[in-house]
Amino acid sequence: MKVQRVYAYAPDGAQRSLVAAGVGSVPAGFPSPSQDYSATQIDLQKLLIRDEVSTFIVRVSGDSMEGAGIYDGDELIVDRSIEPRDGHVVIAIVDGEMTVKRLRVTPNGVILQAENATYPDVQVAELSELMIWGVATRCLHHL
């Protein structure tokens, strides 16, 4: 899965306001007739963005991460201030090529793991240049 495009979340320090009128929780099964409409608001900015300055929106292409729920054309919210750890979905740059994979740190080295059985894991060679650009925190999936 490749990174198709990177967008700054708040370019030039511009304020972003993401507030949605809430309806409480919506059942995915049978609706409850006793559930009342809730007039509360949900601040999507607080819910989705931890650090505005370090947050970017990344559009991805390809299907190598479908097992993680990331599909072709989805946008990832990526926080560059998070320290990458084993198991994180990361934006990695390997030898100048940007990709989305699950980070695996093993005694034998770093592996960038695809979440689709048709793609092999990428064992990062000792002499390869690897930079973890950021950690994906959310996937904005199109329905």
Rank of each mutant, 00 (worst) to 15 (best):
K2I: 09
K2S: 09
V3W: 04
R5V: 07
Y9S: 13
P11K: 07
A14N: 03
A14Y: 05
R16E: 06
R16M: 04
S17I: 03
L18Y: 05
A20G: 01
A20R: 02
A20N: 04
A20T: 11
A21G: 08
A21I: 03
A21C: 02
G22A: 05
V23N: 06
G24E: 13
S25N: 06
V26K: 04
P27W: 05
G29Y: 00
P31R: 10
S32R: 12
P33E: 08
Q35P: 11
D36F: 05
Y37I: 13
Y37M: 11
Y37N: 09
A39S: 09
T40G: 04
T40I: 07
Q41C: 00
Q41T: 02
I42H: 09
D43P: 03
K46M: 01
L47S: 01
L48R: 00
L48M: 00
I49V: 11
I49D: 01
R50H: 06
D51R: 07
E52S: 01
V53N: 12
S54M: 06
R59K: 14
R59I: 07
R59S: 15
G62D: 14
G62T: 15
G62M: 14
S64M: 06
S64I: 00
M65C: 05
A68M: 11
A68F: 10
A68G: 14
G69M: 09
G69T: 06
G69L: 04
I70S: 08
I70L: 12
Y71L: 14
L76H: 01
V78L: 13
D79T: 09
S81Q: 13
S81H: 02
I82T: 03
E83L: 14
P84S: 10
G87Y: 02
H88N: 14
I91M: 06
A92D: 03
A92S: 05
G96Y: 08
E97F: 10
E97R: 07
E97T: 09
E97H: 11
M98T: 12
M98Q: 13
K101S: 10
R102H: 07
T106L: 11
N108L: 09
N108P: 02
V110G: 03
L112Y: 11
Q113K: 15
Q113E: 15
A114V: 09
A114K: 02
N116V: 03
T118H: 13
T118V: 13
Y119F: 15
Y119G: 12
P120F: 08
V124Y: 08
V124R: 06
A125S: 10
L127E: 15
S128Y: 02
E129A: 06
E129F: 02
L130K: 03
L130Y: 07
G134E: 02
V135G: 03
A136Y: 00
L140S: 11
H141F: 06
H142P: 10
H142K: 15
